[in-house]
């Protein structure tokens, strides 16, 4: 009996920590999303107004609609690009060799750079006058000379994708490499003996076996891409216009530039709901019993 009490007692510190730092703020922001609370009018939360913020977001806010489109476009291109590049690099680095080992060793470096710094570096590289990429693109492909990368609506979003892919591809490559290393060698060799060319081995044997790992990489990258914020701040500032305003950046703008805490909480919770859905899916995939 005493042991039973004790074990719950021992759980208390951890429970308090999670409650105080995660669940409580979440609950507060959740209730705030149903209240009218503009910091410009009052420092204390105002009255409950039901689903009004959510209805506004869904029906009557072009800013929100824009951020949703921008985020969806960003996620789609970013996740696809990251998956394809990570898979391709992992397949190239899979073979044993000195060059491969060296490359694998330095792969983690881009991931060690803070995302805010990635944004600042890319801002310099894509600078219209002195950016090294601007110069390189123009030198290699003359029609691109004089393009103001960060001044064009589509190009700016692509640069944002590029900066994020640059940061994530190496890390995801390592994850895929791990998945490849865990695959049994025999089915691939059997396919070669059966008469398959290398691309057929890849299509018919390797990729199907790698699918669970690719799914995990895809979901994880979607989660991180949905939360895209740092590089928006340091690279594009949401511009030009609002062509690179992601949902996370919109939440920040509503809360700390326009001081509408109630509406910001509502938009934040819409984003959180998407992330939670993905997190549940991810957990199911990871915790699923592997079939022999």
């Amino acid at each position: 009996m005493r042991d039973r009490t004790l074990k719950y007692l021992l759980l208390v510190p951890a429970a308090v920590l999670v409650l105080g730092t995660t669940l409580w703020p979440l609950a507060v922001s959740f209730t705030t999303s149903f209240r009218d609370w503009r910091l410009t009018r009052s420092v204390t939360p105002g009255p409950f107004i039901g689903f009004e913020h959510y209805i506004t977001a869904a029906t009557d806010d072009p800013e929100f609609l824009n951020a949703l489109t921008v985020t969806a476009t960003f996620v789609l291109i970013d996740v696809t690009l990251t998956l394809v590049c990570a898979l391709g690099l992992a397949l190239l680095l899979r073979r044993a060799g000195v060059l491969q080992s060296l490359t694998r060793a330095v792969l983690i470096l881009p991931f060690a750079v803070s995302p805010a710094l990635v944004g600042i570096s890319f801002r310099f590289m894509f600078n219209a006058e002195m950016g090294v990429f601007t110069w390189l693109a123009g030198a290699v492909f003359p029609p691109l000379q004089g393009v103001v990368w960060l001044g064009d609506r589509s190009a700016a979003l692509l640069v944002l994708v590029f900066s994020d892919a640059w940061r994530w591809v190496p890390y995801m490559t390592l994850v895929v490499l791990g998945g490849l290393a865990a695959l049994p060698r025999e089915p691939e060799e059997a396919a070669r003996m059966d008469g398959a060319r290398e691309w057929q081995v890849l299509r018919d044997v390797t990729l199907p076996a790698l699918l669970p790992v690719l799914a995990i990489v895809g979901i994880l990258k979607t989660v991180f891409a949905l939360k895209m914020f740092d590089q928006v701040v340091t690279l594009t500032g949401g511009g030009p216009g609002s062509s690179t305003v992601t949902l996370a950046y919109l939440v920040y703008s509503i809360a700390f530039r326009w001081y509408d805490m109630g509406y910001a909480s509502a938009v934040a919770w819409i984003l959180t709901a998407m992330l939670m859905g993905l997190a549940v899916w991810y957990t199911r995939l990871v915790l699923r019993k592997p079939d022999a």
Binding site: P184, E186, P187, E189, A190, A191, R192, M193, D194, G195, A196, R197, D204, V205, P208, A209
Partner: peptide, 20 residues
Amino acid sequence: LAPRERDIAMVFQSYGLYPH
């Protein structure tokens, strides 16, 4: 010659079946 060009079949210790 690549394995596929040698026209020989192989049976592996752990079967080497295609699980999917």
